[in-house]
């Protein structure tokens, strides 16, 4: 039961999960295509925050052997989630760019951004 009482854990993971939920809510319920793409982008940010938070070590330093930090290997935070997030940010950028260009094409074709006004695209 005491795991629900740690304020720091709740703040860190709670904010990350909250971002993910906000993004999913926007992507699921909003009618505007721009807002749906924004929701997916917010969901991305939440996942990135979550992954970085998992890799943290208490009182840890950045995983960089800069001069003066060569012997601090055992207090360095986990570099693997950071490398994965670097990849994920780039992929997220590519996905957002292609999604927005598709939105531009849809707008050009239907002259509206609301998905309930575009036929054959109803929920």
């Amino acid at each position: 039961m005491e795991k629900y009482l740690n304020i720091l854990n709740i703040a860190i993971y709670g904010s990350a999960v909250l971002l993910m939920l906000i993004g999913l809510y926007g992507a699921l319920t909003k009618k505007s295509l721009i807002k749906i793409v924004l929701g997916l982008s917010i969901l991305d940010s939440g996942v990135h925050l979550l992954m970085i938070a998992i890799g943290y070590l208490k009182d840890g330093t950045a995983p960089i052997f800069s001069p003066g930090n060569e012997d601090k290997m055992n207090i360095m935070v986990d570099p693997i989630p950071q490398a994965l997030v670097l990849t994920a940010i780039v992929i997220g950028f590519g996905v957002t760019a292609v999604a927005l260009s598709l939105v531009i094409r849809l707008y050009r074709h239907h002259n509206t951004l609301r998905i309930d006004e575009i036929k054959k695209l109803k929920w």
Binding site: K3, N9, I12, A53, L57, D59
Partner: peptide, 20 residues
């Protein structure tokens, strides 16, 4: 979904050495 995600990640804990 949010409740179970929070539950899982609070179980892992913040700032502790873990699976990798």
């Amino acid at each position: 979904l949010g409740f179970y995600l929070i539950d899982i990640f609070l179980g892992i804990g913040f700032g502790v050495p873990h699976f990798t």
